[in-house]
Write a protein that binds this DNA or RNA. Structure first.
Lengths: 329, 329
DNA sequence: CTGAAAGCGCTTACAG
DNA sequence: CTGAAAGCGCTTACAG
């Protein structure tokens, strides 16, 4: 249970190096091989990976730093990443920062200490500390979800998606619209989606838009929606920055007997599976989170192998028209 | 960037041991301390954790082996676990087996090789191979979600919850019921919930129940539900083994113009956040996944410290009555 | 408070 | 094919 390569070498009656060679697929005679096999099986010997890594000076581990695990996007992305990584012989080490920015920085250094080969950071906000850390640790890092010129980045095209949603809502005849977003500190979700939406709005003179902010949780959205819905001048459509927020808005509407889409149109962002199951189906933008995870994995592997990688990759999205938006004449 | 304790010792002009002592909070004079501090900062020295662990012969890592990450229960549990672990100075290493039983076994050995201090396994099916592995690796293991006498286990009271749901449905007057479950290989979700439900049914002579099986995905549930809904003799209620399945059933019903709960009652298991947001709200049983994760973390830490732990812990649940079940007279 | 030395468990040229 | 030896980067008694 607690034996080393020396122990089993002694039992078999060979040198440590022979056992090591056996373990690493080096040349060993058939007789010796069989003996070693047997003894390893009998003793239940398990190599100490620290000692291995200490010599090898690297691991086959890739670190993922995520702000949270309990979100659709995060879990999908991580799953795709994990799949791809394993197929290439890498192991994924996930660090959950619980939306704490300074923990991201710590995690960066932590992972470096553990001689992780590469790191994928699910970015929300990029600070100077991030950039400094990335530079200091000297191992490949990819930002997923946000971009920065100095770091390899993979992003979803949030601006374009926001623009599409905006155009769609306007095409449907809505002129009094509420945009329920999240903090602009989140560059992609908070800012880019809104900016894209705003661009569409600016192209339509008559549109009147009020902007509101919500937290990410459904319960926060229910509350934020209440303020909008109980106002005197209720909008005909609420554009939400995430599907979760849209779900909260739908709930708040339902609690007031407001029918969707007849009395109120709603859109989301994300394309969570559940948005297709509910009634009415939520019109939203679907991101390929799983694919994003896969791609990030492939790129980090290339980087580890010192192969070239595009410094910025923009991922596709899909507009999903369902039943939550009505025509307004 | 690539310096060792020897490098920085040389620069400072002291012995490696002094630097090591500094790093580990041993006694070092103020002057030396300051010099070392400076040099470490300048050089960006990061200790090699392999070398550290090789001596220390243990890590402060706990492994979690999970069948999948992209489920509400898994992500909630992992998040709770992670929180508790970090607060106690442990790091969580998550291994996703993607519902592949043999990968669970591999993961057990893998983690042992990495000198993980303890392992929490999100169990669905327990085989002899599991038991053998647990024994061979000789480090603390906790099964979460399934029980076995030979291993520390934490379970949700699925049997009792199934019984409650059964009783509730019967009290509401339903006599023709469909139970849409999952494979019995999943002892907790597939078997115990059904068994509890069956017990309730047996206490009510007139009840007529048909049993069906579905996959775990919403889309699989939509399909499975279709078979039930399109049959000649449609039940007045469908009891689903998970909330996801219930969501799929609701979708399938909606697609056919079947109203819930007027034409069809539906229940779930799980208590996913979204079940409260949809309309009608889903009557279900809510498990404290986050708490379960926390508790598992606390227990594995006790085990690592060689403190005693109950061999079986049964977690609470909460019956959530909402609007998806109608009275039948 | 500080340093020299041994050792953690493995791998890797280098001889044979 | 096999073995002796050095070394990976750190920690830890043991002296001083």
């Amino acid at each position: 249970m607690k034996n080393t390569i020396a122990d089993i070498a002694k039992i078999v009656g060979v040198a440590k190096s022979t056992v090591s060679r056996y373990l690493n697929g080096g040349s060993v005679s058939d007789v010796t091989r069989r003996k070693i096999e047997q003894v390893i099986k009998d003793t239940g010997y398990i190599p100490n990976s620290f000692a291995q890594s200490l010599k090898a000076k690297k691991t086959s581990m890739i670190g993922a730093i995520v702000p949270r695990l309990d979100s659709f996007s995060a879990s999908q992305t991580v799953t795709g990443m994990d799949e791809e990584l394993r197929q290439n012989g890498y192991q994924l080490l996930i660090v959950n920062t619980n939306q704490n920015l300074s923990r991201e920085i710590e995690a960066l250094y932590d992972l470096a200490r553990q001689k992780i080969s590469g790191i994928i950071l699910f970015a929300t906000e990029i600070t100077q500390a991030h950039l400094t850390a990335v530079e200091e640790i000297g191992i490949p890092v990819i930002f997923l979800g946000q971009q920065h010129q100095k770091v390899y980045s993979i992003i979803y095209n949030d601006f374009a998606a926001g623009y599409d949603i905006g155009q769609y809502i306007l095409t449907k005849g809505h002129r009094k619209i509420a945009y329920l977003g999240v903090t602009e500190k989140d560059e992609a979700v908070g800012l880019q989606r809104k900016l894209g939406f705003q661009k569409a709005v600016k192209e339509q003179e008559k549109a009147e838009v009020d902007f509101f902010e919500s937290g990410f949780r459904m319960s926060a959205a229910v509350e934020a929606a209440s303020g909008i819905l109980d106002g005197l001048d209720r909008p005909s459509a609420i554009v939400c920055a995430t599907d979760n927020i849209a779900l909260g808005v739908m709930k708040a509407a339902h609690m007031r007997g407001i029918q969707i889409p007849k009395d109120l149109s709603v859109t989301g962002f994300g394309g969570y599976e559940v948005t297709e199951m509910i009634h009415p189906g939520l019109t939203t933008v679907k991101y390929g989170y799983w694919d994003g995870g896969c791609l990030a994995a492939r790129q980090i592997i290339r980087l580890v192998h010192e192969e070239s990688v595009d410094s910025l990759t923009v991922l596709h999205y899909e507009f999903m028209e369902r039943e939550s938006v009505d025509n307004v004449e």
